[in-house]
Design a protein around this nucleic acid. Structure first.
Lengths: 180, 180
DNA sequence: GTCTATATTGCGATAGAC
DNA sequence: GTCTATCGCAATATAGAC
């Protein structure tokens, strides 16, 4: 199953990768088709328009976010630590999906913006339940947003948090905010 | 002087506005020329290529950032409070310039990315001098980045910090981090 | 389901008149 | 310094063969 992804999945993978690794402009039908190993005509059989492809990555994001929210709610270390730890640049499906949708949002795609807003509201809601103080929850969200922003906008350049020790200290500092 | 901006300045204004208010794709030569009140040929007399126009907005950013760094260093409330206060969405030349360049950076323009990186390094350096602890300085930067990110990516949607009271409390909380 | 044309539009840039 | 007209190209999308 994971060995032979369908053409449809390979196309969405290619679209997300080009968006996230390069730019919205680079993610042309030609480039997506080439990376997915199909012709442009083949691509357009599966997705009748570029818009349909956007819908595809948006529903993928939605699925990844739902799974992440579950993990966040039941994280052993608690939602705050989970949120901070998973905001640091890694290389997983959720992050790639978020960066891809962020690029679409930059191109004035209102559906993409709505999807990102909804994701933020969900995170914020869990953080608020966890820390009590809405303003502290918002500050924690902003720290996470800042990390994603640096990942999406300034790949390579950003040495956000270098070590595990740094990460542990950030979580400790942030938790102290919550207890004040 | 402010009454009759030169065609050159009107073109850069129009380019920045289209980038910031709409998207990189919307900022075509046609659209910029129309907004600036010149023809496409007229535009291309002042800027031989779109790339030259990008250079124009990058030097504007550089000038705005230099002025901001001076204000930050000499802010009566201190650099930290100044930085946090000016990270909240407002409507000034610096912010419009940053958002415009952020859009260019999203389009894989390495010069734009370098300019944003340099800006961040300058801010961070002042914050580090001010708070001592490099990790706390980085956290403060991330909060500011988060605010800019929300402004640039999700206009309207983002209710970052609603009131003056919220802002004052954020600054107080952040300063407490610095003193721990 | 996947391919090769091809139609069509929109963009960046050039040429040359005024 | 500013204009109109036009070239060349790249991108989305369609048509129809296999």
């Amino acid at each position: 199953m994971a060995d032979t992804p369908s053409a449809r999945d390979r196309i969405l993978d290619a679209f997300e990768e080009l968006l996230a690794e390069q730019s919205e402009r680079a993610a042309t039908l030609d480039a997506v088709a080439a990376r997915a190993g199909v012709s442009k005509g083949g691509l357009l059989y599966h997705f009748a328009s570029k818009d349909a492809m956007v819908d595809g990555v948006l529903s993928r994001l939605s699925a990844h976010v739902d799974a992440d929210l579950d993990r966040m709610r039941s994280a052993p270390e608690g939602p705050v630590a989970y949120f901070i730890r998973t905001s640091v640049p890694t290389d997983n499906d959720l992050e790639r999906s978020i960066v891809a949708v962020a690029r679409l949002a930059q191109s004035a795609d209102s559906r993409a913006r709505d999807a990102l807003s909804a994701m933020q509201r969900s995170w914020l809601s869990i953080l608020e339940s966890s820390v009590g103080d809405p303003l502290v929850a918002r500050i924690i969200m902003l720290i996470g947003d800042g990390m994603y922003y640096n990942t999406a906008l300034l790949p390579d350049t950003n040495a956000v948090l270098r070590s595990e020790t740094d990460m542990d200290r950030v979580i400790e500092l942030v938790k102290r905010l919550a207890d004040s």
